[in-house]
Design a binder for these strands. Structure first.
Length: 728
RNA sequence: CGGGGCGUAGCUCAGCUUGGUAGAGCGCUUGCUUCGGGAGCAAGAGGUCGCAGGUUCGAAUCCUGUCGCCCCGACCA
């Protein structure tokens, strides 16, 4: 990395910290995580004679090089650090020495604008009061610092590198071969992300802006909801996981690492253990409860099969929050609080979403809901009521008894020959009875060993998640081995039935509601007709064991069920005392008695949300970002800048004016022909586009087009007219 | 974890069966023309064919191993 001419300028650890603090005060909120890049000479490096000589040679060579090659070098070869510092002119001109007493924010919106010397109130932040420009610096900028007509306060709010000629954007016409879903294809084509390995992606500058905006919205809503941000390490010691018992429970999904002392660590797939550990350190009294701590942190889950780009990546960005409470009622209050905050987040990023009931896993009684962004490419199937508010993940969707009494028996029991008819479909066709008039029997492994038979209506499917919760059935659910079933029943699996069944039978509610049904005779090549519960076999105890079907009545009695596909973007969960107990976290209550706190956890897949929004909002030309999370808000496309100085000048002026008005504007000053320029504009999906051309200017007009609109409108050639459209 | 496939220029891929001078399109560079929806012509730059062994006079091509990636399934929830 250091043979690229960076020997003369580099970051020292101290300056990086200090700079981050200082620059962070100057940038607008959603920019505050962007790395500041105030450069200073690095004494350690400069002292090395060989390095210094090489650097000097390179600097000289660079100066000798004619223009075009310099341009190429800046944009392509210098690597990300320099490439991102676009728009600030040649690097050497802005390398201010930074030391005690000098505070610089060299990042202006472009090389003609500098933040030096702005009044302290402009930033509204304490640190800026010490922002005194050094004399040489102030002098250097005096001649070119055009503040006329600018509102410095607004200037601060606008962003940094906004000329496409200096913004590393790399788009392709061709769709990458291994990208299956639209979001993955578009993110790659538009150069928002680049793949580094299986399930590993680099966020390129344009994409990172989107990610940061989503992050900011998440932070704002979490802060507003009263949660406090912290940041935990991504690497965690094994001891914590051994303490909670999950070191053994977690499968290969958890990436385990050894350090040089052969101590075990993992790259955190989640942070329950760490947060409880810290809570134990600092929280001892009921007076300190409740609280909610959150972080935005990179997680790693070693998925067996990472796919769909950001949707199921191995490394991803997640906001995870953990709350602690004295009792379940207070946990529930915070849970509802988070539920509201999450809804606001999803609304703000412009997602069409549903809150669905989720499976609470093996932690009985705990409440859990997922926030799903509806999309045909979603990995989860959702059962949603057509009328009421009921919505649940397929796994969790309840199938209660219909409440209708079982009809009386009207047929006599009869054994019929059904040679070779093993499946429900075959039998129902062979005997000409409806699939819904058949009962099928599945055999699962029992919790205490042995076998358990599960009776379902012929057209229904077993929900294994529900089955695993049944006291008689093994958890995790496992079907019985075919040989064991044949040994127990004395017939092939195609002819099983509840009559004279050799193993305990449990039944789904729906199977219990039919009379005169058909089922296997427990004899090869034979079925029974006219079977009735109670008369012909014991009435099996009824449970909810099946998967819900499209068209079923909604469990809340309002409307019927329709299926949607969704992308899980958020998940809120009442954990109860699972982790606090396992890790012996207690606080003293008012009576001085030790109490184990209740815990909740709440996650949002930040990087996944970016992909999910694209899945919902795109067309054949590219992405369509909502204003709230677009990488830029408005794109200025001047046409024919090589011929028309006027177009160029007008575009520059509009760009400057929009920045001054606090609008995140991007100027396409690459001088491309209109075709590629518009194609890129559509692909990147910036919500508003202003085209400036000689034709329009002749009539004193700009062309305005909202991304996705049918056609463009001509508007007055003024900032006011543009702003009006932006705010429409 | 089981099955299948692919690693050749920055990207998408051909060439491999049947061993003998490494190719196309896109992109990139330069020039001229063109330029309101992914331009044309001309001239260029760019690859130790994933890596390591082996067979052979000779390997992108055949063999063995290895690494990486992709797809299907199972697993996980």
């Amino acid at each position: 990395m250091d043979d690229r001419g960076a020997a003369d300028v580099c970051r020292t650890p101290r300056s990086a910290d200090a700079d981050r603090q200082e620059a962070g005060q100057l940038l607008d909120p959603w920019q505050r995580h962007r790395r500041p890049s105030v450069l200073r000479p690095c004494p350690a490096r400069a002292r090395q004679p060989g390095r210094e000589r090489r650097a000097v040679r390179r600097r000289r060579a660079r100066r000798r090089r004619p223009g075009p090659q310099r341009g190429r070098r800046r944009s392509g070869l210098l690597g990300p650090v320099r490439a991102h510092r676009s728009d600030r002119g040649p690097p050497d001109r802005h390398q201010h020495p930074v030391g005690a007493g000098t505070r610089h924010a060299v990042r202006g919106p472009d090389r003609n604008h500098c933040l030096h010397g702005l009044p302290a109130h402009a930033a509204g932040r304490r640190r800026l009061r010490s922002a005194v420009p050094t004399a040489p610096c102030a002098a250097r900028h005096r001649g070119r610092f055009r503040l006329g007509g600018y509102n410095p306060q607004l200037l601060l709010r606008s962003s940094v590198a906004m000329r496409l000629s200096r913004f590393p954007l790399s788009t392709t016409k061709e769709t990458p071969a291994d990208a299956e879903v639209v979001s993955h294809q578009l993110l790659l084509r538009a150069g928002f992300i680049r793949k580094l390995g299986a399930g590993l992606y680099t966020w390129m500058p344009m994409g990172l802006r989107v990610l940061r905006r989503i992050e900011t919205i998440v932070r704002e809503e979490m802060d507003r909801a009263g949660a406090a941000e912290l940041l935990m390490p991504s690497i965690q010691p094994a001891e914590l996981w051994q303490e909670s018992g999950r070191w053994k429970l977690m499968g290969a999904e958890m990436l385990r690492i050894k350090d040089r002392h052969q101590n075990d660590y993992c790259y955190g797939p989640t942070h329950e253990e760490v947060i409880v550990h810290h809570a134990k350190q600092d929280v001892r009294s009921y007076r300190q409860l409740p609280f909610n701590w959150y972080q935005v942190q990179t997680k790693f889950r070693d998925e067996r099969r990472p796919r769909f780009g950001l949707m199921r990546a191995r490394e991803f960005l997640m906001k995870d929050a953990y709350s602690f409470h004295m009792d379940a009622a207070d946990l529930d209050r915070e849970y509802q609080n988070m539920r509201v905050a999450y809804a606001k987040v999803f609304e703000r990023i412009g997602a069409d979403f549903r809150i669905v009931q989720a499976d609470s896993g093996n932690i009985g009684g705990a409440k859990s809901e997922e926030f799903h962004i509806l999309a045909g490419s979603g990995e989860d199937l959702l059962a949603v009521s057509t009328v009421g508010s009921y919505a649940a993940n397929m796994e969790a969707a309840a199938c209660p008894p219909s409440g209708k009494p079982r009809p009386a028996a009207s047929q006599a029991l009869e054994q019929v020959s059904t040679p070779g008819q093993k499946t429900c479909e075959q039998v129902s066709k062979f005997l000409s009875v409806a699939l819904t008039a058949k009962v099928k029997l599945l055999v699962a492994k029992g919790r205490e060993g042995g076998l358990v038979a599960i009776a379902l209506r012929g057209d229904h499917e077993l929900n294994e998640v529900k089955a695993a919760k049944h006291p008689l059935i093994a958890s995790p659910f496992e079907m019985a081995k075919i040989e064991d079933v044949q040994a127990a029943f004395g017939c092939e699996v195609g002819y099983l039935g509840p009559v004279k069944c050799p193993v305990p039978v449990i039944a789904d509610h729906a199977a219990l509601e039919i009379a005169d049904f058909v089922c296997g005779a427990n004899v090869n090549d034979h079925h029974l007709k006219g079977v009735n519960w109670g008369r012909d076999c014991d009435v099996a105890p009824g449970y909810d064991l099946r998967k819900i079907c499209e068209g079923d009545a909604s469990p809340d009695g309002q409307g019927e069920i329709k299926f949607y596909r969704g992308i899980e973007g958020g998940h809120i969960f009442q954990l109860g005392r699972k982790y606090t107990e396992a890790m012996s976290f207690t606080v003293l209550d008012e009576q001085g008695k030790a109490v184990t706190p209740e815990m909740g956890c709440y996650g949002i897949g930040v990087s996944r949300l970016a992909a999910a929004v694209i899945e919902q909002r795109h067309d054949k030309d590219g992405m369509r970002w909502p204003d709230a999370i677009a990488p830029f808000r408005v794109l200025i496309c001047p046409i024919g800048t090589d011929k028309s100085e006027r177009v160029k000048a007008v575009a520059e002026q509009l760009y400057a004016d929009l920045l001054a008005a606090g609008v995140d504007a991007l100027l396409d000053d690459r001088g491309l022909r209109p075709g590629p320029m518009f194609a890129d504009a559509d692909l990147v999906g910036i919500p508003h586009r202003v085209v400036i051309g000689e034709k329009g200017l002749a009539a004193n007009q700009y062309e305005y087009k909202k991304r996705g609109a049918e056609k463009a409108d001509m508007i007055d050639a003024s900032v006011a007219a543009v702003l009006e459209r932006l705010n429409a």
